[in-house]
Design a binder for these strands. Structure first.
Length: 264
DNA sequence: CGCATTTCCTGGTAGC
DNA sequence: TGCTACCAGGAAATGC
């Protein structure tokens, strides 16, 4: 590419872009929610869309987007300008030495790809055994498995019948197997539907994702559980809004808890 | 090191 | 209409 232009205030989210000039984009890869584009000079462009980021070609002759943060000037015939637009600036778009993820600790410690064969029930169980966090919060950390965000965590936990507050280390082996399968099914179905468009998300072709029509619980507190018909409830887990079915996703009785007699 | 808390950001919406 | 207040959340920074 000829150059990477930074249109946002400089900062760690947009580090190293000046080094991209003159390097060829050699591939387009992905790990979890991170896009990885190795560059010919030994660097790597790392992008994360956050919640509202969009990577798309820039229309000829149009005014720059209000929230344009980065513009890549590519060589060759138009369309040869690729933009990163990100209203809320939760996204990242930076250049690092290839494979050097010191500035991206979540990427450095990312769990297995959910659709890889390596993501087995046994591996998930072993990962969960290492944490005392609520299972949902631990899933969101990206460490037991890559790529599961707030929407898909709620959907998968509901499918597996696992309460989001279950301590990760107390998830039973059979629950881990159900959860692993549920994560894979939810992600595969969402990919087939081109993702979940709540407000902003668009595919690279500008299309909305239709998985929103298949959501069972996310954002549906107070509505009927599709499985049992009871009311879905809302919690906050790991600072994130969480919807679940109290009947289909029972919290296991705390280990070592004493039986307590209610006052007559 | 593990985990809880705080921070970053803007658009949308509720309430007055 | 215009104002304030608040909420949404992925990952990093900070604080124990």
């Amino acid at each position: 590419m000829a150059r990477a232009e930074l249109l946002a205030p400089p900062g760690p989210k947009y580090a190293g872009l000046e080094r991209a000039a003159g390097q060829r984009i050699e591939a387009v890869g992905r790990r979890g929610k991170f896009l990885l584009l190795p560059l010919s000079g030994g660097d790597e462009l790392v992008a994360h869309l956050g919640m509202t980021g969009v990577i798309a070609p820039e229309a000829e002759g149009a005014a720059p987007h209000k929230h344009l943060r980065v513009r890549l000037l590519l060589e060759g015939a138009a369309p040869n300008r690729l933009t990163f637009v990100d209203p809320r600036r939760f996204g990242r778009f930076l250049v690092v030495r290839r494979g050097d993820y010191a500035a991206l600790p979540t990427l450095a410690a990312l769990g297995p790809e959910p659709l890889d064969d390596a993501f087995t029930a046994e591996r998930l169980l072993a990962a969960l055994a290492r944490s005392r966090m609520p299972v949902k919060a631990y899933l969101l950390s990206q460490r037991p498995v890559a790529g599961v965000g707030n929407i898909y965590a709620d959907e998968a936990l509901w499918r597996a019948g696992v309460h989001p507050l279950t301590p990760a280390a107390e998830v039973r082996p059979e629950q881990a197997a159900l959860l692993r399968q549920a994560i894979r099914e939810v992600l595969e179905a969402s990919i087939a539907a081109q993702g979940t468009t709540l407000n902003d998300y668009r595919t690279v072709y500008g299309e909305q994702g239709d998985y929103v029509d298949q959501l069972a619980v996310y954002g549906k507190a107070g509505q009927a559980c599709p499985r049992c018909g009871g009311p879905l409830e809302r919690l906050v887990v790991g600072q994130r809004g969480t919807t679940y079915c109290p009947d289909c996703q029972p919290l296991p009785r705390a280990r070592g808890a004493r039986a307590r007699r209610s006052r007559p």
